[in-house]
Amino acid sequence: MHYQQNSFTELFKELYRRIFQRNPIIVLIAGLCPVLAISTTVSNAFSMSIIVLCVLLLSDVTIRLVRQFFKIELMYFLHVLILSFYVTIVDLFLKGFYIEISNNLGIFIPLIAVNCLFFEQYENSRKQPSFLLSLFSAIGSGIGFALIMIFVSFLRELLGSGKVFEVTVFSKPPAIFSLAPGGFIVIGFITAFIAYIGKRFNRDDK
């Protein structure tokens, strides 16, 4: 394992890059499955975000610890094994202690094991020689996922059910926002908006 010295600036740059410039949902369009399915309520999105962040961190640290004993050919298999291990642990833990969350998130907890976000993070981590940079990259991905997930769910809950945190804001909401097409529409608008802002800033820089 490489313990390369990194300055705080480097670490926070990586964190910023993963949250905004390489955001897994709106920039990389990776891991959309739970975002479309789970983001109907803010509480679901919050739970999913915590789970994704924990699994990202744990799998990244574990793969760093064990990868020195393996050759590159086996790393993908190992990554899937480690990911499945942590996802099963989280699934069992929720079934044991937070059954409501487990019921709400349902099949989307086991599906984390095959989420593109984790494979993208693995690829990023594989190329990254520094342990700390890789860790900050995983944290950034998790936070980037959580921010967009919670924002999307806030909009969908508000527009789809007319409620926010069980408080009714308006009656007779358009139900489409609670369904997957509504998720696509909301994510599409956010992605377009962020892309527009990004382009505009880049143009200003030039």
Partner: peptide, 17 residues
Amino acid sequence: DLASRFAIVAAVFTALL
């Protein structure tokens, strides 16, 4: 050698699970 290493790691994770 590769397969046996992988099998050992898989066995450890399975035992933990």
